[in-house]
Write a protein that binds this DNA or RNA. Structure first.
Lengths: 339, 339
DNA sequence: GTAAACTTTGTATACGTATTCATAACGTTT
DNA sequence: AAACGTTATGAATACGTATACAAAGTTTAC
């Protein structure tokens, strides 16, 4: 048998006040006599009353729900951490995360966004995929700012919080050149993703700036472990393999490393240096010990928190926040000698 | 400038019908003249109308939101996959996931559950932690069934979908004995978690059944990689180390393996067999090549989907669904010879 | 001691949808 | 042709909270 839920009206009756007073008791900014508030909260606890957040959302036109859309949540092993940190941080701010997944095959962001907006989310965080610009504008127009993680959308009203991928690529280029590598390859991930192209850009430009002209590019077809394995076979099982590979993402580097070491018998870092990007949790494990660029997840989360805590009516529009990554020097790549 | 959102009233006016008719046009079971419905849906598309799910939830007393509470989402590397699969499946069913995280240090489930219930979730999925029984009963009483993943709560009204941990332990016991191991240790995770104690129970009982009496137990203090590393040092850096270790979770096994191989120079599986539990994505990578029990995640997701698709008023109460795990034989443990 | 300012509370209503009930339109049966 | 069942629609209202406004009570200032 389903018991009726307790409403603010029940509490009001029991406490001998009107319903709006109960509502005000839960709002710090409303002026309620301290004694009244105390009594109401006590009665509420006794009846185990819980404000109906849905009804509140309808009334306030603000749900405290943040939509997060994640494409391929688990394949790269990077986004689970991002999701957890976002969720925890938003929870601290009194907001909740409504999670939407998008898989390359099944559903596109654009199909799902109307549904997300139907939930009246206060804002929308989108990772590893890029919505169409009409939807971005539509969402912004109805007061629901969009925040892209690790994508840029210049010229739209979407905001972006992004690791400085170009700079990350540059850092890796310097590190590899300083260590004396002669044949350097960039292993790309998803071809048209902005993370990929920016990392590549920063990397190859810096190499050329320093006079290294023949960077070879290898296209991984996806951000996945298997894609890294396959790339390793194509790249390394030849007469003249590269002596350094910069992978667009850690997960590619893991596949590449495993295949190089266990299948092809290549010594790392003696014969081959491998560098990744992300610093996923497994990268630091001795089995991989992967030199990589750490994405500043905590800082990205803070940046989003700041964007979301703007006062009503001052929602951010078209802002871009670029945060520097950091090179984590481990054992999968030769370290430049200190002279 | 924030534009007002389009409501069913706007659509009704534009289509020359009443608001309830618009509402009915979106409900398959309501009888609306086909021509009328078509006109309404067309007008709705033109105005880019999107039903307000929040208002609908208030009116129907059903939000199509499922709360998922996850403790320590990322540490074990197991639950991200679970979360993604749940989210994707529920999305297919027209439901959405509202995500809550709980970290051992910061917040307990019981603190957060009232808040979850405030969002009027239709049901509650809880992983890797165990709510107090008062809250379970309260939630069930107001018509929000609770589904525990990988925990059992006999005697309460909570439902449970669970890998058969006892049986998994048994399978590992047989496998290790068949391979001729003489000194076998169980590396426990969180001491009082039911997953841990059931795996241990199945394992040690089976060993004793087959006449192997001195199973040693080692307490890892947490389901984490570092905990596995520390356990390795305590267990293996001795005169008489075990020749087989069954870890309560893959993540422990990874730490143990890495430390054994790279720090202590132990050969796996020649000198030591290691078996895990979960089959997390990295377990299959050659760097670990971990023999482990695969948790039947897809089946668990299906089981939950079935529980959630019961007709209104017939919500499941106190049901337990036990699903068998499967031994994934890889290279981290000696394989019994086939005689 | 009175006017003004502020605090506290209640009344009425809005938020956007779904549903109950009544009514109208229409076809079917006798 | 009357009685009836069916389908399509609108009017009224419920869902649970927040807020604008008004009214009453209290404090402050002179």
């Amino acid at each position: 048998m389903v018991k009726k839920p307790v409403t603010s009206i029940d509490v009001a009756k029991a406490a001998g006040v009107s319903q709006p007073t109960v509502s005000r008791a839960y709002d710090e900014n409303s002026s309620v006599a301290p004694a009244t508030r105390a009594r109401i909260l006590e009665v509420a606890k006794e009846l185990s009353y819980n404000p109906n957040v849905i009804a509140r959302g309808l009334s306030k036109q603000k749900t405290d729900i943040i939509g997060i859309v994640m494409a391929n949540l688990t394949v790269s092993l990077f986004y689970p951490e991002v999701l957890e940190k976002f969720t925890t941080r938003l929870q601290q701010m009194g907001k909740q995360v409504l999670l939407f997944t998008v898989s390359a095959e099944h559903s596109s962001v654009d199909e799902i966004l109307p549904r997300v907006l139907g939930y009246q989310v206060d804002a929308l965080i989108i990772t590893s995929t890029m919505p169409g610009s009409e939807i971005i504008e539509e969402s912004t127009r109805v007061g629901r700012p969009i925040i892209l993680i690790n994508r840029l959308a210049p010229g739209t009203s979407a905001n972006a919080v992004c690791c400085d991928n170009v700079d990350g690529g540059r850092i890796v280029a310097d590190f590899l050149l300083d260590a004396g590598h002669k044949k350097i390859t960039y292993l790309a991930g998803v071809e048209y993703s902005s993370t990929n192209s920016m990392r590549e850009q920063g990397f190859t430009r810096r190499l050329r700036e320093r006079g290294f002209t023949n960077v070879s590019l290898e296209q991984g077809d996806y951000y996945s472990y298997d894609s890294g394995c396959e790339a390793a076979r194509r790249l390394l099982d030849t007469d003249d393999p590269p002596d350094a590979i910069f992978c667009a993402a850690d997960i590619l580097a893991l596949g590449l490393l495993d295949t190089a070491k266990y299948e092809l018998g290549i010594k790392v870092p003696e014969d081959l240096s491998v560098i990744g990007f992300d610093d996923i949790p497994v990268a630091r494990m001795p089995a991989f010990d992967l030199t990589t660029i750490r994405q500043p997840v905590d800082e990205m989360v803070e940046a989003v928190a700041e964007l979301l805590s703007r006062p009503d009516g001052e929602s951010p529009i078209g802002e871009t926040i670029l945060l520097p990554g950091e090179l984590m020097i481990r054992g999968s790549a030769k370290v430049p000698s200190g002279d």
